[in-house]
Structure formats: C-alpha cells, structure tokens
Computed example of a mutant assay.
Amino acid sequence: MENYKKSINDMSWCGLVSLAIAQQNGDCGFNAMQENKFLSMWLHSAYKQKRFPKAIAPDLEHLMKIAKSKGQFAQLKSLLNELYQNAE
C-alpha cells in the first residue's frame, strides 16, 4: 500500500510540475481549458509510455476517461492536487 501511495504521489507531482514548466515556457496557458488540454495529453503520454508503475495504470485510465468525458470542465489540475495531497 505504501508503494502505491508513493506512485500516486509521484505521478500527480510530475503532472503538476510538467504543467507549471509548460506554463513558464509559454507552451500552455493559465486558463482551465488550456490546463486540461495539456494535462490530458500528458496523462495519455504517461500511460502509453508506461512512465509509472503498473499498479497505478487504472488510476491513469480513470483520469483519462474523466478528461475525455468532461473536456475543459474536467478540473484535472484540481484532481492531481487532491491526489498529491491525499497520498502524502
């Protein structure tokens, strides 16, 4: 269970840091629509490239489904923040 929490923590932290770097570099805007689009693509890439342990693959799939069904209203940044804070 501890490894699972660490993996979730790592994944959510990496997503949030990637978003912040993209925003700092001008590759992503600061509005919710642009953040959701960036994080949706980031989650998809992370899943396809198997960047994280297999144990959290269902979590990545779930986040991708939320992104696909809710689009700009998915609030992916908030979801990743919650995962990061709850996994600590």
Rank of each mutant, 00 (worst) to 15 (best):
D59S: 10
S45H: 12
S78C: 08
M1Q: 08
F52V: 08
W13I: 04
R51D: 06
Q23E: 05
P53N: 10
E82I: 10
S69E: 15
K37Q: 13
Q85H: 08
N81C: 10
A20W: 07
K77E: 14
M33R: 12
S45D: 15
S78V: 11
S7N: 15
K5P: 00
N25H: 03
C28R: 02
Q23L: 01
V17W: 06
C28A: 06
L43F: 07
A74W: 03
A67M: 05
L60Y: 12
D27S: 09
K48I: 10
K5H: 04
A55W: 05
M64P: 02
Q72D: 14
F52K: 10
C14E: 09
H44N: 09
S40A: 04
E2V: 04
K68M: 04
S18L: 04
Q85T: 12
Y47T: 11
P53R: 07
Y84L: 08
Q85G: 00
Y47M: 12
M64F: 03
P53M: 05
A67R: 02
G26A: 08
E35G: 07
Q24N: 14
G15W: 02
G29I: 09
A67T: 00
Q72L: 05
A32W: 08
N9I: 02
I21R: 08
L16A: 00
L83Q: 04
Q72V: 11
M11E: 03
F52S: 07
P58M: 03
A46H: 07
N86Q: 15
N86A: 06
K48V: 14
A55T: 14
C14Y: 07
H44L: 08
Y84I: 02
R51E: 13
E2Q: 14
Q24G: 04
L19K: 04
Q72I: 11
N3R: 15
S78Q: 14
L63I: 01
E61F: 06
S45G: 06
F52E: 06
M11C: 12
W13R: 15
S78G: 11
Y4L: 15
S45V: 14
M11K: 07
D10H: 06
E35M: 15
M33G: 04
D27P: 01
N3Q: 15
A67Q: 03
S69Y: 09
